[in-house]
Write a protein that binds this DNA or RNA. Structure first.
Length: 415
RNA sequence: GUGGGUGUAGCUCAGUCGGUUAGAGCACCAGGUUGUGGCCCUGGGGGCCGUGGGUUCAAUUCCCAUCACCCACCCCA
């Protein structure tokens, strides 16, 4: 028996009419990006594996177990992009964008790839829209990034969102906090779960992520990053908060929020939907002031965010938000008989050249069936051309909304 | 990697305490109008009941395996 091919685990086809929703969202994203003066960057789907190892961090989950890595014919190790920030920074350095302008504002949208166990709102090929702002340490940039992200959701009419804010510090203050945290947890290790014991040695901050209730209770008392920020980080964080308050953007502090990527510094934020279930994080972002230099460029402060489009789709569908559908056509041409088909084809092509979206019957169906098809397609007008019309040199033009039908000389056709 | 759930028509799902031709709604096609849509009525096409094996006179139904998908853990967008 012939094997039935199907899309790979964690990938899926986006069919009409869902594809119109995707187009709609992408159009909104581009619209907002333009308003905020971000310009599109398109970078490759795959890069040197090393770029992601260095950029994202060797010990992160993404790098250790989630990347689609393969060798090309030349034996080089390549990886399908699991995120966009590292490639953008690579391009930023490669093309010396810093020399062309002091501040660079870039956006992108497209598929990313991570080999995880798929579930609702988490595909292996998933989609993001994202922005990066490179070249400034100004807290106003942090706020702009958050507002930009929110504005996309606002324009889509998304409700029940919550903005969470944290600061993950910098290499100056992080080690101090780490010491305090380790000291705190040391004698509590027997009470903590096995995962947390592992996190304790590998990445103690991650213990905050633990979902086990007893761990949560214990870690409630644990020293948090926010209390250990160095002067510079504290100052920065205060000004970000002030600006948000001043601009009346609601947020909630989440001092347990940790970023999964190593390059984050200072501001970290996340936008969650309250009705999305387990995968409730719609987007996340933050500062990465050291990534550019880590990847070999001049030290350049930067901030960015990435939003999951697949999850956005889930949220939009669950909130039953309406969106314009592009499925309706202007004119359906219904020929009756073989001779009429020729005239109809000619008419079809000329109308299309004038920019009308038109359709014609390809199955030589009865007029009744053609009318039904026209109705299904949402045609505003139907032009009927049969033997009778050919003889008289006219078209029957029917308005599908009103049901009115008029005959018009072919030369004077107006639609 | 761990746990739970589900596989029956294109879609959403009934059903078979093991027994003749396996159902509904939606969708599709046709007719009711020999050249006119939506609503309505009538009819029709479409299923190796996920796959393989076992038990049985008999399996879509029970058992086992397997695959696929979904949800959750984990992690994140």
């Amino acid at each position: 028996m012939q094997k039935k091919y199907q899309a790979l685990h964690g990938t899926r086809d986006i069919l009409p009419p869902e594809s119109s929703l995707w187009q709609y969202i992408e159009a909104k994203v581009r619209e907002v990006m333009r308003i905020y003066n971000y310009r599109e960057i398109r970078f490759p789907i795959f890069e040197h594996t090393e770029l992601f190892q260095r950029g994202i961090g060797e010990s992160t989950d993404i790098v250790t177990k989630e990347m689609y890595t393969f060798k090309d014919l030349g034996g080089r190790s390549l990886t399908l992009r699991p995120e966009g920030t590292a490639p953008v920074v690579r391009a930023y350095i490669q093309h010396s964008l810093a020399k062309k302008a002091p501040v660079n504002k870039l956006y992108y949208l497209g598929p990313m790839f991570r080999q995880e166990r798929p579930q609702k709102g988490r595909m292996r090929q998933f989609h993001q829209f994202a922005a990066e702002l490179l070249g400034t340490l100004d807290p106003a940039a942090d706020v702009e990034m958050i507002d930009l992200n929110l504005e996309v959701y606002r324009r889509l009419g998304l409700k029940n969102l919550k903005l969470y804010l944290n600061s993950v510090g910098c290499p100056k203050c992080r080690p101090q906090h780490r010491q305090k945290l380790l000291a705190f947890a040391k004698d509590k290790l027997p009470e903590l779960c096995s995962d947390c014991n592992l996190r304790y040695t590998r990445n103690p901050l991650r213990m905050f992520d633990c979902k086990v209730e007893t761990c949560q209770i214990i870690l409630k008392e644990a020293p948090v990053m926010l209390d250990s920020l160095c002067h510079e980080c504290r100052e920065h964080f205060e000004r970000v908060k002030q600006n948000l308050e001043y601009l009346e953007i609601d947020f909630e502090l989440d001092d347990h929020m940790v970023r999964g990527l190593d390059y984050y510094t200072k501001t970290a934020f996340e936008i969650r939907s309250e009705e999305l279930g387990a995968q409730d994080s719609l987007s996340g972002g933050g500062r990465y002031d050291l990534l550019v230099s880590d990847l070999g460029g001049e030290e350049t402060p930067a901030i960015g965010f990435a939003a999951g489009t697949d999850r956005l789709i889930v949220a939009i569908e669950s909130q039953k938000i309406s969106y314009p559908s592009d499925e309706k056509i202007d004119i359906f041409i219904a020929p009756v008989g073989e001779e009429a088909k020729k005239t109809a084809m000619k008419l079809l092509f000329s109308l299309r050249r004038k920019g009308h979206s038109c359709e014609i019957d390809y199955l030589d169906r009865s007029l009744k069936a053609q009318m039904r098809e026209a109705n299904r397609l949402g045609a505003k007008k139907v032009i009927i051309v049969g033997e009778r019309e050919l003889e008289e040199g006219v078209y029957e033009v029917k308005d599908m909304q009103t049901g009115e039908q008029v005959r018009m000389p072919q030369a004077e056709l107006k639609v």
